[in-house]
């Protein structure tokens, strides 16, 4: 197979600019698709009482009815409408996940910035604690924390928080370290900026981009972890229409495939939406990606 020039993206761009290449806008649809799916889910979460055809907790339908008219996603072993439960589930999972990520960014970001900016023992202490969290696989650590605190949704959120903040601390620290010694930061300090002002005015704007990318991608990870804990019975309590717990209840009635399938698809689409968004955001912001390389070359 001969393909001269295929290894060199720049050269290929010059020689045969439009051969099989898709138009530039092709990359955007991922962001658009992610945005639309996320928006749809947020609307569902907000308007679930208006949209859901049934009460998510009412056990008044035929049990384990397959998907059909009247109950499009079927019913579960207690005669509850799965479509309504999936819709109401958005009210449980999505706000909690967003809160969770916001808190991790805040905690991890502050600690990481402090570690990067002040260095020395403050930084060392914070980063060693972060290292320790990294020394355990996330689910195992979160599971132990959640089990120790007692099985509840709030404790599951707390457990995910414990394992989620260190990545922000680490990334923020790395970015702050990179920026700290740059001329504009130093000249700010020379002009008499306090440490806080220097962090806020000169450092922060230069680290938000990558943190945003990480946070967007992390929404998916956090939701997966949270619903995974619920699946294991360490999160939401049974009647609550939480997606992970709903999948778990589908394990018991294995041949009624719809019980587990639809809540799982709900998790998948939400996570996918935020991963689409995050990935597109990364492309737009990350100086090391293909696009930036290409632009530099032009």
């Amino acid at each position: 197979m001969k393909r001269p020039g295929v290894l060199d993206p720049e050269r290929r761009a010059e020689i045969r600019p439009r051969r099989v290449r898709l138009p530039e806008a092709w990359r955007r649809p991922l962001a658009v698709a992610g945005g639309v799916i996320a928006l749809v889910w947020i609307v569902i979460a907000v308007a679930a009482p208006l949209l859901a055809p049934h009460d998510p907790l009412a056990q008044d339908l035929p049990r384990l009815a397959p998907p059909g008219a009247g109950h499009w996603f079927g019913t579960d072993q207690l005669g509850r409408d799965i479509l309504s439960r999936v819709m109401y589930g958005a009210r449980v999972s999505i706000p909690l996940t967003l809160l969770l990520v916001a808190l991790s960014v805040l905690i991890g970001g502050l600690l990481g910035a402090a570690a990067g900016y002040f260095g020395r023992w403050v930084g060392e202490t914070i980063m060693r604690v972060a290292d320790l969290v990294f020394a355990f696989p996330t689910v195992i650590l979160a599971m132990v924390v959640a089990a120790a605190l007692g099985a509840s949704l709030a404790n599951a959120v707390l457990a995910v928080l414990v394992v989620a903040w260190p990545s922000y601390a680490r990334v923020t620290r790395g970015l702050v370290l990179g920026v700290r010694e740059r001329e504009f930061v130093l000249s700010g300090r020379l002009l008499g900026f306090s440490a806080w002002r220097s962090l806020r005015v000169d450092v922060l704007p230069n680290v938000t981009g990558p943190i945003m990318v990480l946070a967007t991608l992390d929404i998916g990870t956090a939701l997966l972890l949270l619903s995974g804990l619920s699946f294991l019975g360490l999160g939401a309590k049974p009647p609550s229409p939480e997606w992970g717990a709903m999948v778990a209840s589908g394990v018991e009635v294995f041949d009624s495939w719809w019980v587990a399938t639809f809540p799982g698809l709900a998790i998948l689409t939400v996570v996918l939406a935020f991963n689409f968004l995050g990935d597109s955001l990364r492309d737009a912001l990350d100086p090391r990606t293909a696009r930036a390389i290409k632009e530099r070359a032009l």
Binding site: L30, G228, G244, V247, I267, L268, V271, N275
Partner: peptide, 17 residues
């Protein structure tokens, strides 16, 4: 992207089924 978005426990169930 789909690969990193699928809930593992759900995929396991689907595959098993």
């Amino acid at each position: 992207l789909i690969g990193i978005s699928v809930p593992t426990f759900w995929l396991a169930l689907v595959a098993f089924y």
